[in-house]
């Protein structure tokens, strides 16, 4: 790649730039030469069989996982081995987990205000106003004073989304947000995510919900064995797979 070409890419509005990223767990090579660019406002769905590295790649973006080689630039900040740098990136990136990971000893409201108060140093009143605003958006303001254990799985996941949004992130990462939910609760979480996508949030979403991918994704990325095998628009991915691996994957998840 020539120098001029590289610079021209740096100058456009890509919010995430992953270059030649490699990661090993001990001897095991989990991510192999990952190259990915995400535009501001782009909605990306990442799918693939389990163990393909899709969660690991997503978790590298906010440094929940380290990587050994390659570079990663998030919102203009390069990820380097520096606590200040890592915390700066994490403030821009919200994350929603498969198992919600709400703080069980804090009320819903306290879960939501923790970040704004301690990380962004906002006054408590202001943080609570923000929290209530986002609880309204995920349609559970009446649960503010309850503890996470008193809520259903779907409600907990919506709280987790609201908790991330309270930090006003540039990017939202979703790591299989509906995989731990009962079938009846998946829709309420997906509805919130669709709404968020419609508002122009940059989203990276690891999910097996192909309906969601078709509905909101600008681009679907298919991963296997630590590599990005194919990436394209949802129509192309689902109707016109280029590799036999994706074809097999699609036949296995759609054929019943």
């Amino acid at each position: 790649m020539s120098i001029e070409h590289e610079q021209s890419i740096e100058n456009n509005d890509d919010i995430i730039i992953i270059k030649d990223l490699n990661k090993w767990y001990g001897e095991f090579h989990v991510l192999k030469d990952i190259n990915l660019r995400v535009k501001k406002g782009e909605r990306i769905v990442i799918c693939g069989p389990s163990g393909s590295g899709k969660s690991t790649m997503t978790r590298c973006i906010n440094r929940l996982e380290e990587f050994q080689r390659g570079s990663l630039i998030v919102n203009g900040v390069e990820m380097i081995e520096d606590v200040k740098n890592i915390e700066a990136i994490r403030r821009e990136v919200g994350m929603v987990f498969q198992h919600f990971n709400l703080f069980p000893h804090l009320t819903i409201l306290e879960n939501l205000t923790l970040g704004p108060i301690w990380v962004q140093k906002k006054p408590k009143k202001e943080a609570e106003a923000i929290a209530m605003k986002y609880l309204e958006r995920v349609k559970i303001p009446d649960q503010a004073l309850k503890f996470p254990g008193q809520l259903s799985g779907g409600q907990q996941q919506r709280v987790a989304i609201a908790r991330s949004l309270c930090m006003n992130p540039e990017i939202m990462l979703f790591d299989e947000p509906t995989s731990a939910l009962d079938p009846e609760m998946i829709k309420e979480v997906l509805d919130v995510m669709v709404e968020l996508a419609d508002e122009g949030m940059t989203m990276l979403c690891v999910t097996h919900e192909m309906g969601f991918a078709k509905k909101v994704a600008d681009r679907v990325i298919f991963m296997d064995a630590g590599e990005i095998v194919e990436q394209n628009t949802p129509e192309e991915i689902f109707n016109n797979p280029q590799t036999d691996r994706l074809q097999l994957f699609l036949s296995q998840i759609l054929d019943h």
Binding site: L64, F97, A160, M167
Partner: peptide
Amino acid sequence: PKGQYEAADSLGLGFWQ
């Protein structure tokens, strides 16, 4: 659970926080 550490990390909390 490990998820508690990860959730705290992803909010950008420092080590002592």
